[in-house]
């Protein structure tokens, strides 16, 4: 009886032949898959570009829309600012790169111009308020999130801008690279609640700090860091310390 495939020399040929056909088929298939994927990517990319360019103005102008867009980008793993080219492919289409850098420059402007008053420490809401004022009405609304993103884009410059959480949902931006220790963060939080005023007695009663600990923290902020001012005419305690960045200034 004759078996398919046989046992002769011809069988080897036949096997090689079928293997070759399989290989061809497989590469054809994967080529088709790659093509399909490319087509899909192109489509996705086009859709995104279309989306971005149609909604460019909304993205730049409307903070909630911008937030939603940035969240969407984060979810699909796309950074609107990243890309192979300078400023990024995204940045080019959206002009969001320029927008973000411009905001960064304005953040620096406000931080530097208020530095002599607040010692390089500014409350986030104050910063947002001053930046918005600087941009004027035409600049659209700026949110804390935008400012934080801009500060991140400033990181490569090594200026040491940093966002600090002082608790109670309050955030501050520090524009002078100085170590802010834990006690100072506590003092800042308390100052924020009291309109900028802190005293040794207040720290003792609110936080149960020892006289030495409270005095050291405040004197360091006063003498070493220059982020608070002394008041020797305080009605309650005689001596009080005022942190300009925690005070509310109306220009």
């Amino acid at each position: 009886m004759r078996r398919l495939g046989g046992v002769g020399i011809a069988a080897f040929d036949r096997q090689q032949l079928s293997q070759r056909s399989f290989a061809e088929l497989s590469s054809e298939l994967s080529q088709a898959q790659v093509d399909a994927l490319h087509a899909q990517l192109d489509q996705f990319r086009n859709a995104l570009v279309r989306f971005a360019s149609t909604h460019r103005d909304s993205i730049r102008r409307d903070p909630t829309f911008r937030h939603a867009f940035q969240q969407m980008c984060a979810q699909i793993g796309v950074d609107p600012l990243a890309g192979p080219r300078k400023g990024g492919w995204w940045a080019e289409i959206l002009n969001l790169g320029d927008w973000q850098y411009e905001l960064g420059v304005q953040v620096v402007d406000v931080c530097v111009s208020t530095r002599e008053r607040n010692g390089g420490l500014i409350a986030m809401d104050e910063l947002v308020r001053l930046v918005s004022k600087l941009r004027g009405l035409a600049g659209g609304i700026v949110t804390e999130e935008d400012v934080i993103r801009s500060i991140k884009t400033l990181k490569p410059l090594g200026a040491g801008y940093e966002v600090i959480d002082v608790g109670g949902g309050k955030r501050m931006v520090r524009s002078i690279p100085k170590q802010l220790d834990e006690d100072q963060a506590v003092v800042l939080a308390i100052a924020h609640q009291a309109g900028g005023r802190v005293s040794v007695e207040l720290l003792q009663s609110r936080r149960g700090w020892s006289l030495e600990r409270a005095t050291t923290a405040l004197e360091n902020m006063l003498l070493r860091d220059g982020i608070c001012w002394l008041d020797d005419q305080d009605e309650t305690n005689g001596i009080a310390y005022w942190i300009p960045s925690a005070m509310h200034w109306d220009e």
Binding site: E116, G119, L223, W229, W242, M247
Partner: peptide, 20 residues
Amino acid sequence: SIHAAPPFFTQQPNPATQAV
């Protein structure tokens, strides 16, 4: 507005602050 800030009326021990 700085005229309404209580510490503005106290001489500051920190030279940089005092310069301001």
